[in-house]
Design a protein around this nucleic acid. Structure first.
Lengths: 220, 220, 220, 220
DNA sequence: CATGAATGAGCTTTCATTCAT
DNA sequence: TATGAATGAAAGCTCATTCAT
């Protein structure tokens, strides 16, 4: 516990960089700080000085590590997205059923993003302004949707628009949760709607989406 | 055609104010300019100076007509949303079937927003940063969804989250169209997905969503 | 009483101009408004627009009557100073004793200026920034001081510096009263100090400075 | 002499900060510049940009060192007042006679303030708009006036109004000297008037106020 | 590598002033 | 005369970015 507490304080990136060189550690501190500042002030209102201050480095130091505000924002977003995707993947590595996979992906995505609201906000803002991020997340998703079609579970054509729409549904639920307008059940609600949309019979959709998540599948 | 071209150049608000006093015309010019700047730069990045320049008035003139950027943004967003809602309403005044209404609302919303891409972008950005705008649009939608439940066509619970999700689906399609990633068929695609999600049988959903829109129902 | 109330509402200048042409009346309204705005906001912070608004005329109208803010300020100050001087003069027309005259001048000046705090502030600010105003007020004063020397009551050399110092003493008392730091007795206190400074024996100075002012000598 | 000339050019604050860090030196330059601009334009009319230009730094640099115009004005005024008070105090440390002290305070105050006309103007303007400055200067004065009363030399009641009036007399002499309307004798003249006002017999007042100031008591 | 003082463009806002009506 | 919309210079202030140390 003490360790995880320290982790939280130091920030996830700083923690990962603990054993790297000084430069990498400073860089990581900046990224952790950026996540916090973006989440608090929003991307536009965040200032480089503020990020540097939060990272406890001189403002000039920022520019040794990042070209500008956009650069750190993009990097942070991609790293977060990559991390989230990796965790989702790991949680579903031995799961074959597409319906189950799709439902879990949405539900666990929300759990992870809401468990670390700062990351959640950063992700949300990044999904809005970084198409490349959406593309990255889409590749995992596309595979599962295609799998569902192959398995005869989904009766839709899998194309870019479907991916966008599916993603937007999850994103809107994330926004509602981060805003406090929706509770923990939002994940199941949206997963159910998504499955219905994909052609899963209502009963099956409800059963899958509302089945309790195994504790080991939850974020740690 | 010549006329509609002039209209486009002058901007919709300026056009409406053509016969009003000088003050109202300047105000309208500023609103048209704001639409363009918000659409191009986003709300946060837009500057009052830029809006004034686009409206071809001195920067000080802006403050004769609006207290600040928020004031013009809110007014523009509400006027646009009101205009769109009015047009949707008018097109469906004699339509009773909820499935039909819901499908049409999404499809025509996209037609209208894409027909005037600047308005489309402004709407999209406003929906992101003005919750009040989402609430306003939601009220129309909620009525139709409830109607569908009453008619036995929709098998979902109508709550805030459903509204948000439904709206997000339309918004994601709008984004794809404005980005050029999706074509005119995006409206039907999304409408179909929405109907499936609401519980409409796949066949009926497809039939309704892809039925050609009567020309008179299209925006003029 | 009703009349004097109306006077107060309309402003002194407007009242004086009641029977003049329209232009003169507008001009007078502007001057009354300026007195109020200068007193409330200070000269620097006062804006022409605000004066025009207080006078209930269009902002452009201001420039038909005054070249700029300085012009109206100077004119207002000189008119006020002239008015005050006239009233002081009238109240002392049959008074020969220089000691008495000097004491009364200070005390009644304070009464008048404090009776109309807006005029008081305007005067005070004007005395600070308009040397010409100080010169104007000085001429009356110089006559009385010389009279006192002639009468053998004052044992000082009457020169510019004495006038300035004497005036500054009255002004500082005015400031203290307008600030609420001093009460009605400030006039007598300062008058006594002035007389002592001029060489009047302490007893005589006190007796004169603290003798109740005849009611008819008070401002109406 | 060459050195003292350089000092004058660099400004007193900059000179004091010569051996400090770069930040402190820039800050000092800004304060010197502010003294000059306040003296020339007055506090209200002075602009931050103008101060920065006079200090030969970028406008943004100003805000690295001071929150706003008020902050630098207050600091400058207090530093000047403190400096003047310290010098007066030092020159009178072994002086017991209240009459002598009071006379010297006024005369040397004028010498100091006129020896550095910019500081004189800044002081004058600050006394007008910063009551806190008057209060600070008053505390020294009050002690000497009370001492005079204790010693039986002054026959007045020492209260706030007396302090204000006494201060105003010195200030008016300072103004006259800075304006060029009065010469070096103004100090003695005013000191004499002040002593007479306080109750010192005319002869003694004149003798004290006009006694040549020892050279070592003059500002260096 | 890191620092942090300095920069200056650019933002929001106010306001004295002009001018077509 | 009077109006009031429009102007544009200039104010206060912020912030991404550079650079000497």
């Amino acid at each position: 516990m003490a360790i995880s507490k320290t982790r939280a304080l130091a920030g996830v990136f700083a923690d990962e960089a603990r054993h790297l060189g000084k430069s990498a550690r400073t860089r990581a501190r900046l990224m952790d700080a950026a996540v916090g500042v973006f989440a608090r002030d929003g991307f536009e209102a965040a200032s480089v000085n503020e990020i540097a201050r939060a990272a406890d480095v001189a403002n000039g130091t920022f520019y040794l590590h990042f070209k500008d505000k956009d650069a750190i924002a993009t990097e942070v977003a991609l790293r977060i997205a990559g991390d989230v995707a990796r965790r989702l993947d790991a949680a579903m590595v031995d799961l074959d059923d597409a319906i189950e996979r799709t439902s879990r992906a949405t539900r666990q995505f929300l759990e992870i993003a809401c468990g670390q609201p700062e990351w959640g906000w950063a992700l949300l803002r990044a999904m809005w302004s970084l198409p490349s991020l959406r593309k990255q997340m889409a590749s995992y998703l596309r595979a599962d949707l295609k799998r569902g079609v192959r398995q005869g579970a989904f009766t839709v054509k899998v194309d870019d628009l479907l991916i966008e729409v599916f993603t937007a549904m999850a994103a809107s639920a994330l926004l509602a949760r981060l805003n406090g307008e929706a509770g923990a059940e939002a994940g199941s609600k949206v997963a159910e709607l998504q499955l219905r949309m994909l052609g899963v019979p209502a009963k099956r959709a409800a059963a899958t989406a509302w089945r309790p998540l195994a504790p080991e599948a939850l974020p740690g």
